[in-house]
Design a protein around this nucleic acid. Structure first.
Lengths: 134, 134
DNA sequence: CTCAGTGCAAACTATTTGCAGATTT
DNA sequence: AAATCTGCAAATAGTTTGCACTGAG
């Protein structure tokens, strides 16, 4: 249940926070920009301000509920943190986002960092691709 | 010689363009934000406006002279396009940027895209890491 | 001399912040 | 009631654009 997550994050269970979390949980789409959430709530005639959405998303990010991605195109995109790490393919034709996980790449990244005297803390891998037309 | 590149890009050989290119070519550092270039030129008391720097960098990018990266932290970062593709390790402690190239990862990316019915157009791989202290 | 290029200020986009009033606990 | 939270408007940060003037070819 949403409310538990919010409470565990040390946040009050407010209207906007519940609604935003619900969007992530009930939609087939997994990735949303702040603006998109703003529109969805507006369509559902909730009167949540854009600033609040940014604030809540940032709090959720800090609490580990949500992950922020910086794909091309200015707007940050958020998704629920499922706990299972994955990277993304961005479909440049339709804007769709596909998730994948590849152990070979994951391991190489760690090795590469080590080869250069570093400990890998985090990484960002985004594949920009177009559908193969038949 | 710089001027040739500028001409081949179909651009006039102007003061600001030459100076900006020179920064990339003569510095040990390889990656610069627009703001950094602005400061460097100012220190060298050139009166080049920040807007011009952005315009020139964008033109250079279009001409394939320069590559734009969007690392964490808002500001875009530019480097000379050496022709040899590489990815980056960002040293989170010192802000240093290290380049690397790994064929295994390159190949896996292509395969992964294909497995999902896509043709890889471009990619962005950034490792965020900290130096291993001994 | 002509047209591309430049500086400056104003415009824009994405995001953040201050504050007075509204909500949660 | 106390403290957190929210909406709104104003502030920021990074980058882009309009325009009259400057400079390269």
């Amino acid at each position: 249940m949403d409310e538990i997550d919010i409470k565990e994050a040390g946040l009050k269970v407010t209207q906007p926070r519940v609604q935003i979390l619900k969007i992530f949980e009930t939609s087939t789409q997994k990735h949303f920009s702040a603006e998109e959430i703003f529109q969805l709530l507006r369509d559902d005639d909730s009167r949540v301000g854009l600033a609040t959405i940014y604030r809540v998303l940032t709090q959720f990010e800090t609490a580990g509920l949500v992950i922020r991605h910086n794909f091309e195109g200015g707007q940050a995109v958020f998704e629920l943190d499922s706990g299972e790490h994955h990277d993304h393919i961005v479909d440049m034709k339709n804007g769709k986002i596909i998730e994948f996980h590849d152990e070979i790449i994951e391991q190489r990244q760690i090795e590469i960092a080590k080869e250069h005297g570093y400990q890998l803390i985090d990484h960002s891998l985004i594949l920009y691709a177009e559908p193969i037309d038949k």
